[in-house]
């Protein structure tokens, strides 16, 4: 009986694996120490740039709109909405940057 395609493919991959020269991976201790070094000495520049710039833009828009529409209760409610929108924008930017970092 003829072997099924998925089995043929799996067998071919395993055969290629077996044919590859042996390769030693770093131990978990070595990997941990390298990663700790990289985390400790990664460039600080740009780490917070995305958040700072998003926050800056949000605050600028907020200030501009509050200046444009400053008139009693209407402005107060508008400000409340805009503040929550700005907070939402910051949270979204944090979420998006986390996705891109991964």
């Amino acid at each position: 009986m003829k072997e099924e395609l998925p089995q043929q493919i799996r067998r071919a991959i395993l055969h290629a694996e077996a044919a590859a020269a042996p390769h030693d991976l770093p131990t978990s201790r070595q990997a941990w120490s390298r990663l700790q070094f990289r985390l400790a000495y990664r460039p600080a520049r740009g780490r917070y740039t995305v958040h700072a710039s998003t926050l800056g833009v949000a605050l600028y828009v907020l200030a501009f709109l509050s200046w444009m529409t400053w008139s009693g209760w209407l402005s107060a409610s508008l400000l409340a909405v805009l503040t929550s929108a700005a907070a939402g924008a910051v949270c979204l930017s944090l979420h998006i940057s986390r996705i891109f970092r991964s």
Partner: peptide, 13 residues
């Protein structure tokens, strides 16, 4: 590109 074992076949790789 993956270095094959010299004693084993390379055709599948």
């Amino acid at each position: 590109a993956i270095e094959p074992h010299p004693e084993k076949g390379v055709d599948t790789t």
